[in-house]
Design a protein around this nucleic acid. Sequence first.
DNA 1: ACGTACATGTAACCAGTTACATGATTAA
DNA 2: TTAATCATGTAACTGGTTACATGTACGT
Lengths: 181, 181
Amino acid sequence: MSLRFAVLTLLDIEPGSGYDLKRRFERSISHFWSASHQQMYRELHKLHQEGLLDCAEQPQEGRPDKKVYSLTDAGRAALQEWAEKPAAPQKIREPFLIQLFAGHRLTSAQMRRQLERHLEQHRALLETYQEQNRRFYSRDPEHQQRLWLAHQPLLLGIETEKTWIRWAEQLLARLDEEGDS
Amino acid sequence: MSLRFAVLTLLDIEPGSGYDLKRRFERSISHFWSASHQQMYRELHKLHQEGLLDCAEQPQEGRPDKKVYSLTDAGRAALQEWAEKPAAPQKIREPFLIQLFAGHRLTSAQMRRQLERHLEQHRALLETYQEQNRRFYSRDPEHQQRLWLAHQPLLLGIETEKTWIRWAEQLLARLDEEGDS
DNA sequence: ACGTACATGTAACCAGTTACATGATTAA
DNA sequence: TTAATCATGTAACTGGTTACATGTACGT
């Protein structure tokens, strides 16, 4: 259910084509929800069929035609209704933690490598989040004011990554203490 | 792919039936990976077919027969191989953050209600995690020593929940400041 | 000649959820 | 007699991933 409302939300802010949407997804929603272009197109067709979206075909020169989607009244109503409803909190799904759980099958050196690899990945992710954060604060105050709510997930992302990194560093320190036991 | 290795990991620690597995899942792995009993049975059948599991049928009195699964050599090899391999870090998938993103469709009172509802849920989750943590530390030192690695995901869960709660509280405070703008 | 951006799709498959089905035992 | 626990499953559906397909334009 979530993808459809992510799509409706983006098109509510500004109409666009499937291709457009994909890019806007990557720049914003992808921090907390991702989707491939195939999913996007499938969802757009379904939403169109159900009458939640209008579709205007725009012929273009030298490029494939564009299908520009926008919300119908029914679409806006559906989005509104969903936005007010409680959303079920998701559980963590992290394969790496299953590997930790299976840790008795690894030597402590292998375990270290696994942890260090993940640390690297999370540090890199933190870096890109912080970069995006800096970009946000370097824009004009009007922009910051207008989009402050939409900016909050990024802040959560930053804090979550820091938490993960702290945890992994402590675990590494503990692995050192324990030696090869 | 993760479910199959979660199953293999649990059966590597101790053989058991599908029903057993389900309960052990709930007590341990479910903090970071969940599955329904249907998924479990399906996975067990597949793993058995592929020769990664042995199955011993145990007739019981007054109860349905039990199928006790345990790893074959091939199963242990597959688990080992997977445990050494890098695991792709998962992205956050949190519908609530999409709702935040669609925040312009809500009044700030509605937004407050949504946030408070989520805060409650995360506080409750933190409580149950901390309860499990206390139980762990109340057990004998030998037990703590033996399972310290498997206990780490719970610590991560606790810190993650705290982070979430801090973030939501700050957001609430900010909503108050902004008033009904 | 090669890659990237623009633009849209089909098909097959895998993973996860929901609903339904069966049937004995035990404790309130 | 009602609900919970033990124990295993089928079927239909929804959501997500991977692979494949097509074709122009523009820069290097």
